[in-house]
């Protein structure tokens, strides 16, 4: 048994923090129109928005893993770079976290829109497509994954990679069989954060991808629009979003982590 040195005084601010995070959700649950909930949630447009959200957030997470893990590795190894490019790269990764998502959406339009820097040369149109939803989600959510994986890589012991090299492993084998398995808990935590952030993405999506039922209207957008007409229905939809996020966080966490932390 390890002795805990937690002083009881810490419970006061910690309790306030729990209240601040938890009570709004309690209010949401208390005020939810439980009676009309089954009807609301079986509406085809709600199911369509939920399906679109789950689908796009999953694809965005896969894309973030494919692009974000390499970026995290580069970032973790940038310690021996000159200060300026190193700090620029770090700032670049952090910007989507602090940028209002709507501004991020405008920036994506200016890049990939019909008259955008790159978009004007593309033979197809990205805005108002499901692809645009995924791009917006990746833009906003990938930094969560990158930062989680990067800190895991930094915290891991690089001498295991050295040991692997003396055993004849090439860099690729080392990455696949040593580096990545060692940071797997960080990767799964980052992927979960990324997925839930993508699931809740609103501002960049509605700005860059617009809102069209079944194509770009994700659950957060449907919720926001419903708030304009029927706040009760909007509460029900936010509740759905919350339940889905919590369910994903709880179930996946238990499934992914054992065996990697022992």
């Amino acid at each position: 048994m390890r002795r805990s040195f937690l002083t009881p005084a810490l419970w006061i601010p910690a309790g306030l923090a729990i209240a601040l995070l938890g009570l709004p959700l309690v209010a949401l649950i208390v005020r939810a129109p439980w009676a009309q909930l089954p009807e609301l949630l079986s509406r085809s447009e709600v199911l369509q928005a939920l399906g679109l959200s789950l689908g796009t957030a999953s694809i965005a997470t896969v894309v973030s893993l494919a692009l974000g893990i390499p970026l995290a590795l580069v970032l973790a190894r940038s310690a021996d770079w000159p200060a300026v490019p190193r700090r620029l790269l770090r700032a670049l990764v952090t910007v989507p976290l602090v940028l209002p998502p709507v501004v991020g959406g405008v920036a994506l339009l200016l890049l990939l829109g019909r008259r955008g820097l790159i978009g004007q040369f593309l033979p197809f149109q990205i805005p108002f497509s499901t692809t645009a939803v995924v791009i917006a989600q990746v833009f906003v959510a990938m930094p969560f994954l990158v930062l989680a994986v990067e800190s895991a890589v930094r915290a891991s012991d690089r001498r295991f990679e050295t040991a692997a090299a003396t055993l004849g492993a090439t860099r690729w084998t080392i990455l696949r069989r040593v580096t990545l398995p060692l940071v797997a808990p960080g990767v799964s935590a980052g992927a979960l954060l990324c997925f839930t952030r993508a699931l809740g993405e609103f501002g960049a999506t509605i700005t860059f991808a617009g809102s069209f039922p079944g194509v770009t209207q994700t659950l957060p957008i449907a919720t926001y629009l419903e708030l304009q007409r029927d706040p009760d229905a909007a509460i029900a939809l936010s509740l759905t979003l919350m339940v889905v996020s919590v369910a994903v966080l709880v179930t996946l966490r238990d499934r992914w982590v054992p065996g990697l932390t022992s």
């Binding site: 012991d157 050295t162 398995p181 060692l182 990697l260 022992s262």
Partner: peptide, 9 residues
Amino acid sequence: FQDYLLFPH
């Protein structure tokens, strides 16, 4: 190696 560096996973 001195502390062996066996792969923990």
